[in-house]
Structures are given as structure tokens and as C-alpha cells.
Design a protein around this nucleic acid. Structure first.
Length: 452
RNA sequence: GGCGGCAUAGCCAAGUGGUAAGGCCGAGGUCUGCAAAACCUCCACCCUCAGUUCGAAUCUGAGUGCCGCCUCCA
């Protein structure tokens, strides 16, 4: 089990990761509200957490990864009504689309994709507990509110003070709400809205309670890692904490991880600003691996400026690495010195990716290793392993060719040595027709498959 | 108004006390029958001003610029 360091939003410092159960990790990431196609900002979070999972697994842990779908909320209600279809059919469409987009990006599916509407009874149970402990109250309209003032540690994640929240509250007074900072746990149904029965009348859950309930049901009272975009720190994650902790009386999450935003012209990519690009639109113009590489080339907590030029550049850079792997050297001859250089790279790579998941630095090491492999004509397997952890499909570097191809390669090399260039070129063209590209080097030649 | 974050080369981007990784672009070179690739060399007064220190991109203070959260948001 290799040590992992994680920057914990709760402490605002990098900490040595220690799981609750040795060798196993419960990992929860806030998923999307399924009312539209996902954009590049979403892609960043899920590509990042995908590689985090891969690193944790490679470090020797087993990981249970849970990612929810918020399949009921105001936007879903409005948009499905506008489309004239049932909310469930509506969300089904976008859940399918989401899974397609993630698959295209090479993201390993979650172990569980819980949907809010499948966990109503757990949510209701938690809300009842909050009411009986005096942390929540029911208003005349049948809405249930969480009383923030009754939670001593409120604000510990976002570092906000309750009085300041109240003083600076931009929210208009809501009927039934005792304090501006209180938030809704259960909303009574308006006419025509989807609703479910509860002790407080028909209605639907507030947003925050779903994650508290689903995380608890699937991963236990305390989970190891909880991730999401940094816009979720407040109020979503802050509220999850107070809900869960008032019910269980245990810490909700040990390590909080938050992603920086994808920006466009220095502004956050978001639907309300209208400056977003959907994953499927972008992938219609660039390879998915290029987008993945683009997202991984900067640290996950830094803002990332979106640009199609940046993705093209990432593609060029990635191809350089893949080229190193797909090129088969004719004369491998590793030495102890070179072996040490490679080992140094491998060590540096591991240090990077386990130091708060510094994939950008790790990628830098990949280029160093690439140069070593090309310079000394040695096996590219260590580089393939590195890229594989980052989630790139790497061709089999140890692939062997059919004997007829090998014979052609050899014949062409002999022709070249005897300076029979017309025959050498004829054989080279023959090989190109068979998708084999030859590149001569100082000491011999190497080959790779066309288009890889 | 409150809280938080960011500012490194033409562009992208690592680096949290010891004289600036990596990639893209550009320039020159090596190799070479051709082709392709690769390799080598070159390209940074780390936003400003003070301060701490033997030593700061890295710590402290002030300033400037930009962004985010406080309302749905990955």
C-alpha cells in the first residue's frame, strides 16, 4: 500500500491519507442534475476522479466508488413539463446521455449510480431523526427546514460564519422559514408536480439530503473521500455535513476533494452564463483522448482555461508519447545505467501522482521517460504503464508480428544495406499497404502501425 | 458587504525556502539514399513594493489585476 497525500478542503492542508478500513476506500462524488447534456466542466471533475480511482487502485487499495444522479429538482420539473413528458422519462434520457459521454471519455463506470428518487425512504428517515432531535422543524405549509443555528460546527467546511450568512443573506424571506440561513429538507408538492408521500404530506426532497442519505446507505456513516466541484462547497457540502452529523453523531467525511473550474475568458463555464461547451459537441471535433489529456495537464484544483487550441495542442503532445509506445525498436539493449534512469522516472511519477494527485507533474515525467526510451531504444512498457494509470488506452507494446511481415521487414533492411534502394522502397511501400510504417534510425530501424 | 482562490517565457503549465519540470510554437543543429521519427542546443528580471532569512517564485505585510462562493450550479 503506497502512501497517498490529499489536500483536504476541511483542513485546507495536504494530509497523509488514512482509510477507515485498512486497504479499502469508500469514495463518493457528487454527480449531475440530469436536465441537460454535460459540459466540459463536468468532464473535468469526472475525468479527475476517474484517474484518482485508478491511482488508488494502483496503489493497492480496493475502492467502492459511488456517484449519484439528482433526478428530481426544479429545473427537471420545469423542463420536463415544458417538453410535455414525464419527469422520469426526461431524466432517463439525460442519464443515458451522461453515461455515453463518460464512456466516450474512457471513464470507468461507478460501482453504484444511485438516483435520488430511489432513496426517498432513507431521506425521510433522516429527516424524521433531525426533527426529533430538534435540528429541523415543519412549517405550516408542510415544508421541513433544517435549523442551521442548532448545529454548532456549521460552516466548518466553507469557513463561513452563521451571523455573516444571515447578515449578508440575499435570499428573500420565505414563508415558514425561521431563519434566512435555514435550508429545506422536504418541499411540499405544488399542484401538478411529481410527489411522494411523507409524514408531512406529499412532496419531494430538498437537494442536499439526497447525498447524505445515499452516501450513508451505500458507504456507511463515515466515508473516506467525498469529491465534487468547488462550487459545491457551499452550501451543498456544508449542508450535507450538518445533516449527516446531526443524525449519526459521527464525522460524515474524512477527506473532502474539490475541483477547480473550467473557465472561458476567465469566467466559470456555466449554463447560466451560456458559455458552456457540451462534451458531445467537443468530441465531435477532437479525439476523446485529446480532451482527457488536456484536462489532466493542469492540476485539478487550479482553474483551467478552456480552448479548442489547447485541446489540439494537447493532442499533439499526447501523440508524441503514444508514438514512443507504438514504435517498436529493432535493437533493444538495456544497460544498468539506463535501467536506473527509468527507475528514477518511475519513482518520480509515483511521487507526483500520489502528492495530491499531481497528474500535470506526472505527465512531465512521462515526457522525460519518453526521451530516455527513444534515446536508448529500450522497452516502452514503463511508459505504457504510466499512461494506462492516467486512463489512456495504450497499444500493446510487446506485440509481435506475423512471420510474413517480419520477413518483409528483414528483406527490406537487407535491401537497404546492400544499397538496393528501389527494392527497399518497394518493400517499404508493400509494408505500408499492410499498415506497417518503417522508420530508420542510426543503429537500425523501427516500425509502428499506421494510425496509432 | 462577508469569505475564499489565482497572478511563473509568445501560448499552456509544474514547482510551497537553496540560484525556475514538462508540453506547444519558433530558431539552429545531428542523423539520413529518400521518407518519417527521434535526439541535441537556444528561448523566464517567477504582477509591484516593502519585510523575514545566509538564501524566497516559494514565508509575512501592503498594493494592483482577475476569478469564485454567499441563489441553481461540477
Amino acid at each position: 500500500m503506497k502512501p497517498i497525500y490529499i489536500y483536504n478542503t476541511l483542513s485546507r492542508t495536504q494530509e497523509l491519507f488514512t482509510p477507515i478500513v485498512p486497504g479499502h476506500i469508500g469514495f463518493y462524488t457528487c454527480g449531475v442534475t440530469v436536465y441537460d447534456y454535460s459540459h466540459i466542466g463536468h468532464a473535468r471533475v469526472y475525468v479527475t476522479t476517474d484517474v484518482m480511482r485508478r491511482v488508488l487502485k494502483a496503489a493497492g487499495y480496493t475502492v467502492t466508488y459511488v456517484q449519484n444522479f439528482t433526478d428530481i429538482d426544479d429545473k427537471i420539473i420545469h423542463r420536463s413539463a415544458a417538453a410535455g413528458i414525464d419527469y422520469h422519462q426526461f431524466t432517463e434520457k439525460y442519464i443515458t446521455a451522461y453515461k455515453e459521454d463518460m464512456a466516450a471519455l474512457g471513464i470507468i463506470p461507478a460501482d453504484v449510480y444511485p438516483r435520488a428518487t430511489d432513496y426517498l425512504s432513507s431521506m425521510i428517515g433522516m429527516i424524521e431523526a433531525m426533527i426529533s432531535s430538534g435540528n429541523a422543524y415543519v412549517s405550516d405549509s408542510g415544508d421541513v427546514w433544517f435549523s442551521v443555528a442548532t448545529t454548532p460546527g456549521y460552516g466548518k467546511l466553507s469557513r463561513k460564519k452563521i451571523d455573516e450568512l444571515i447578515a449578508g443573506a440575499r435570499v428573500d424571506a420565505v414563508v415558514g422559514k425561521r431563519c434566512p440561513s435555514d435550508f429545506v429538507l422536504w418541499k411540499s408538492a405544488k399542484p401538478g408536480e411529481p410527489n411522494w408521500p411523507s409524514p408531512w404530506g406529499n412532496g419531494r426532497p430538498g437537494w442536499h439530503i439526497e447525498c447524505s442519505a445515499m452516501a450513508r446507505d451505500l458507504l456507511g456513516d463515515t466515508i473516506d473521500i467525498h469529491a465534487g466541484g468547488e462550487d459545491l462547497i457551499f452550501p451543498h457540502h456544508e449542508n450535507e455535513i450538518c445533516q449527516s452529523e446531526t443524525v449519526t453523531q459521527k464525522p460524515f467525511v474524512n477527506y473532502w476533494i474539490h475541483n477547480g473550474f473550467v473557465t472561458i475568458k476567465d469566467e466559470k463555464m456555466s449554463k447560466s452564463l451560456g458559455n458552456f461547451f457540451t462534451i458531445r459537441d467537443v468530441l465531435s471535433t477532437v479525439p476523446a483522448a485529446a480532451l482527457r489529456f488536456f484536462l489532466l495537464r493542469s492540476h485539478y484544483r487550479s482553474p483551467l482555461q478552456y480552448s479548442i487550441e489547447g485541446i489540439h495542442e494537447a493532442n499533439t503532445a499526447l501523440e508524441k508519447l503514444l508514438n514512443t509506445i507504438t514504435t517498436h525498436h529493432h535493437s533493444p539493449s538495456p544497460s544498468d545505467d539506463v535501467g536506473r534512469l527509468i527507475a528514477d522516472c518511475t519513482d518520480a511519477y509515483w511521487t507526483s501522482i500520489t502528492s495530491d494527485f499531481n497528474f500535470a507533474e506526472g505527465i512531465g515525467v512521462c515526457f522525460d521517460l519518453s526521451r530516455i526510451i527513444n534515446t536508448y531504444s529500450v522497452s516502452s512498457a514503463p511508459l505504457a504503464e504510466m499512461l494506462s494509470i492516467l486512463g489512456f488506452d495504450v497499444p500493446d507494446a510487446q506485440e509481435s508480428l506475423p512471420t510474413d511481415i517480419l520477413d518483409l521487414l528483414d528483406a527490406r533492411w537487407q535491401a537497404k544495406l546492400s544499397r538496393n534502394f528501389s527494392e527497399a522502397d518497394r518493400l517499404r511501400n508493400l509494408l505500408i499497404e499492410k499498415n506497417i510504417i518503417i522508420e530508420d534510425t542510426k543503429d537500425g530501424y523501427r516500425w509502428k502501425r499506421k494510425g496509432t
